[in-house]
Amino acid sequence: MQRDLRPFSAADSEWLVERHGTLYHRDEGFDESFPILVRGIIDDFLTHRDPSCESGWIAWCGANRLGSIFCVREAAATPQIAKLRLFLVDPEARGTGLAQHLLDTCLGFAKGAGYRQMRLWTHESHRAAGRIYGRNGFALVTARPTHSFGQDVVEQIWQRDL
């Protein structure tokens, strides 16, 4: 599968919100609060992004978007820690190596931007994502049951040194 990673732009916003909302509703039963969260993450990125240390990419095949990944600063108080956000691979592109390509791009950017560590937040039910994180040096550091997006879930924090 020929794929191209392009920098995220505001024109990708609606697709990104729609795909997250649709896929997470279908696969996880998440309610309408999840795409609202995604919209907030995107709006914050578009408004406050520091291009020297924050970026996002959209994977394309021809005229079709197939996935996304973002690297952002975790917080002003911890400028050496990057946060991986909005990592998504469309079902038609799963198993093609696209997830690894997106993750390699994000990790390479984070290292080049001077981050020393990367963290991410996900849910235990995303087992395929957990496997790719583990293969790439991330360790599960926190897991806690909670109720989010209309579902009982186990939130996870993964991290790795860069």
Results as ranks from 00 to 15, higher is better:
residue 60 W to D: 09
residue 60 W to N: 08
residue 61 C to G: 14
residue 61 C to Q: 15
residue 62 G to C: 06
residue 63 A to W: 04
residue 63 A to F: 03
residue 64 N to C: 11
residue 64 N to F: 04
residue 64 N to E: 15
residue 65 R to G: 00
residue 65 R to F: 01
residue 65 R to L: 01
residue 66 L to M: 12
residue 66 L to P: 07
residue 67 G to H: 04
residue 67 G to Y: 01
residue 67 G to T: 04
residue 67 G to S: 05
residue 68 S to T: 14
residue 69 I to Q: 03
residue 70 F to D: 00
residue 70 F to Y: 12
residue 70 F to C: 09
residue 71 C to K: 03
residue 71 C to V: 15
residue 71 C to L: 04
residue 72 V to A: 05
residue 72 V to I: 13
residue 72 V to D: 00
residue 74 E to Q: 14
residue 74 E to W: 12
residue 74 E to G: 06
residue 74 E to V: 01
residue 75 A to D: 09
residue 75 A to M: 08
residue 75 A to T: 13
residue 76 A to N: 06
residue 77 A to Q: 06
residue 77 A to H: 08
residue 78 T to M: 03
residue 79 P to C: 08
residue 79 P to W: 03
residue 79 P to R: 05
residue 79 P to M: 06
residue 79 P to L: 07
residue 80 Q to A: 08
residue 80 Q to F: 02
residue 80 Q to H: 15
residue 80 Q to K: 12
residue 81 I to S: 03
residue 81 I to Y: 06
residue 82 A to W: 07
residue 82 A to S: 12
residue 83 K to N: 09
residue 83 K to S: 10
residue 84 L to W: 00
residue 85 R to Y: 04
residue 85 R to V: 02
residue 87 F to K: 11
residue 87 F to D: 01
residue 88 L to R: 05
residue 88 L to F: 09
residue 88 L to E: 04
residue 90 D to M: 01
residue 91 P to S: 09
residue 92 E to D: 13
residue 92 E to K: 15
residue 92 E to Y: 01
residue 93 A to E: 11
residue 93 A to T: 13
residue 93 A to Y: 04
residue 93 A to C: 13
residue 94 R to A: 05
residue 94 R to M: 07
residue 94 R to Q: 15
residue 95 G to C: 11
residue 95 G to N: 09
residue 97 G to R: 05
residue 97 G to H: 07
residue 98 L to P: 14
residue 98 L to D: 02
residue 98 L to H: 08
residue 98 L to R: 09
residue 98 L to C: 10
